[in-house]
Amino acid sequence: MSNDVFPLVSVNHVHVAFGSQSILTDINLTVNSSEIVTLIGPNGAGKSTLVRTVLGLVQAVTGTVKLKSGIRIGYMPQKLLVESFMPLSVYRFLSLTKGTNNTKIQTIAKDLGIKHLLQSPMQAISGGELQRVLLARALLCDPDLLVLDEPAQGVDVMGQEELYQLIVHIRDTRHCGILMVSHDLHLVMAGTDSVICLNKHVCCSGLPEAVAQHPEFVKLFGLHEPAGLAVYTHRHNHRHDIGGDVCT
């Protein structure tokens, strides 16, 4: 129980550079259990680099990345392209996860609605289906922390909403922490506990509502809609089940 007090991840004053080019400066970030933290920012802001630093794929020049000891991380990469010369079914892809078994794969496939895809070749499924398969793979290791790099990529708008609802649902049922990169401001925010607006440094961070009205955020993304609207999900949604309790 006492272990729950510590965050899953804490990034302290991290600085990342490739060669002489500075990518990230003085980044602080924590993710707790049952918390969704969303990273947003323009292209080239270093969102993926920050995620990769948390995962240990990129080393920080200075600063520290602390992970809770014994943490299991489920990672959903931004892109995954299976070479067409490799015969690989969705089932086989999922079964490559360490420490998984058939029962687990069947259960998670059912939860994510990809059961009918299990025997399909990885190359034959659509973009939206692939994202679900990747999410399933990330969930197979029973993660304490889910790291999702642009999970809604290549998914149409309706599919995106469903996917984000699914992510919120995963947080609510599994109580794992979620660190997510997104370029989509409108759909993401409702389920998010904390938003970090990144542009090589942390421009602003906090509750979605606060970030959306922060001058630095407005400077980066403009104010195409009334600021308040940006935090609403389901602008075009007629189902009001999850997250539909719109705050005004």
């Binding site: 990769r52 995962l55 794929l57 990672y75 990469p77 299976v82 490799m86 690989l88 490559l96 360490k98």
Partner: peptide, 14 residues
């Protein structure tokens, strides 16, 4: 197989 499909994913999985 794992690292051929995606090196980052393989690395995160140990």
């Amino acid at each position: 197989l794992s690292l051929t499909i995606n090196e980052d994913l393989a690395a995160v999985e140990g």
